[in-house]
Design a protein around this nucleic acid. Structure first.
Lengths: 228, 228
DNA sequence: GTCTATAGATTGATAGAC
DNA sequence: GTCTATCAATCTATAGAC
């Protein structure tokens, strides 16, 4: 018997059962407010998010990206230098969106650090659910990034952690939050938000805001907030 | 210019800086109490855990597995039918170890549901840190499993969730735990334990037991335990 | 049970016409 | 900026000697 064809093929094709159109809309929405990204690049990035999220970077072929964007296999290279460049762009855009979300939320109403931490958990959790495909690429394809791009992305992630930990420390300082280790508590808090990308199913019962609401309450309780 | 060689190659080779020998020992230990697994198969599985955890299933070649186990590229196929079969065996063994751990912990001392839930979080978290490479394959390579094996693994995962949720419900029933939704609380609790596999670094400051201890306290507080 | 050699398919990326 | 055609490298798995 001759060698079997690559089993990789078996996993191809975006599944159409779990609201794939909703997914595509979500991904497009996540990349919508980016005036500097030309239309065709944007289509490639949307196809890339879908493919990378569903099967991972290494199981995705450049043909998947090109055809998913309505191009011939070679058409991809007019808009991106390589498959790696597509991942880098997608991951960076996703991370930048996450940073903006965290910055805007922590700059928000409050009042007080505890309320802002609650807002952050609600918002950040809901983002990982609403844009679950983008979030999967952001959270689970770091190892596929080239060193230079990984460095940029790691800096953005560190920035998020520092912003949140600072807010937690302010809450501990003013007595609205209680925890032995603000550092560990921050990591646990972000861990909860991030892991949503692993298990969230848009076809399930809970909306992104539902999950955010519940996780916000759980975290405030974990951090000993009075009103939790 | 001719086509560049596959960039996949660039990521090859197990890094030697972050206590690789410790890793190999950990992986071997995780698979140690399995009398039914012949020596060579075990070596392949250890190499597979290291490679799948570091670069993912699709970025790992059958040569990586064979050579990592001290075999020629073709030698692999005497012991496993395919690359997919290696992943299936590794993932199943890892999941079965996790199930045993959860069952034994929940059958443990206590006293009472709240104490058992605390024990579970400590133990399960520490397991994800101590056997972080096995845990990464268990938690992050599900999408690479063939349908039949995925079904088995999903059943084991559901079993774990049900065991833990039942214990949380007993805690709520006897008043030692307080939470609006035992289901959501269980998912959050397991989410914290599982996400340790994503970020834990054996070269870091905290030992697996350290992380388990801290997460145990955080979760008991999240679940409104009296003694937390 | 191990090896060397290789088949057969797929991959990332390029060449060049339009 | 899109296409068709294709290259060279790499992959999984098999064949067959020892």
């Amino acid at each position: 018997m001759p060698a079997a064809p690559h089993p990789r093929r078996a996993a191809r094709g975006v599944p159409r059962d779990t609201a794939s159109r909703g997914h595509r809309a979500d991904v497009a929405e996540a990349f919508a407010d980016l005036p500097d990204v030309p239309e065709t690049q944007r289509r490639v990035l949307v196809a890339a998010i879908e493919a990378f999220a569903a099967r991972g970077y290494h199981a995705t072929t450049t043909r998947d990206l090109a055809v998913g964007a309505g191009l011939s296999p070679a058409g991809l290279y007019v808009h991106f230098a390589s498959k790696q460049a597509v991942l880098a762009r997608a991951s960076l855009l996703g991370h930048e969106a996450a940073v903006r979300l965290v910055e805007q939320t922590l700059a928000g109403a409050g009042p007080g650090p505890a309320a802002r931490v609650g807002d952050l958990v609600r918002t950040f959790t809901a983002w990982h659910a609403r844009h679950v495909l983008v979030a999967r690429v952001v959270q689970y394809e770091l190892a596929a990034l080239a060193p230079a791009e990984l460095e940029q992305v790691v800096a953005l992630r560190r920035h998020i952690e520092q912003l949140v930990e600072a807010e937690v420390r302010r809450g501990v300082a003013d007595g609205s939050l209680r925890t032995e280790s603000p550092h560990d508590a921050t990591r646990a808090l972000l861990s909860l938000c991030i892991d949503v990308a692993r298990w969230y199913d848009p076809a399930g019962e809970q909306s992104p805001d539902d999950v955010g609401e519940r996780y916000g309450r759980l975290v405030l309780r974990m951090l000993g907030a009075h009103d939790a």
